[in-house]
Amino acid sequence: MIIKENVQIKIDERLCKRCGICSEFCPQNVFSVRNDGIPQVTAPENCTSCHLCDWRCPDFAITLEVIS
């Protein structure tokens, strides 16, 4: 059994340019995209804190923090 870390994903809507890369390439489908193109964390329980979303965000709009 894998014990999940507590993960917090913040999306800075001021910085997000709605490219959709985070949700498209999240291996765990943590995100869904709002009608206005801004991603939302809709399945946080799936997150494995792989960081691909914040690392691949071209706009520094996503912060993924692991709360210990």
């Binding site: 910085l15 340019k17 490219c19 914040d54 690392w55 520094f60």
Partner: peptide
């Protein structure tokens, strides 16, 4: 190493430059 004062940056949506800068 990131100067956030000038964000959001000038690059287009989906431009890879921001990702390279992050790396």
């Amino acid at each position: 190493f990131l100067d956030q004062r000038h964000l959001p940056h000038i690059w287009c949506p989906g431009c890879g430059d921001g990702i390279v800068l992050r790396a």
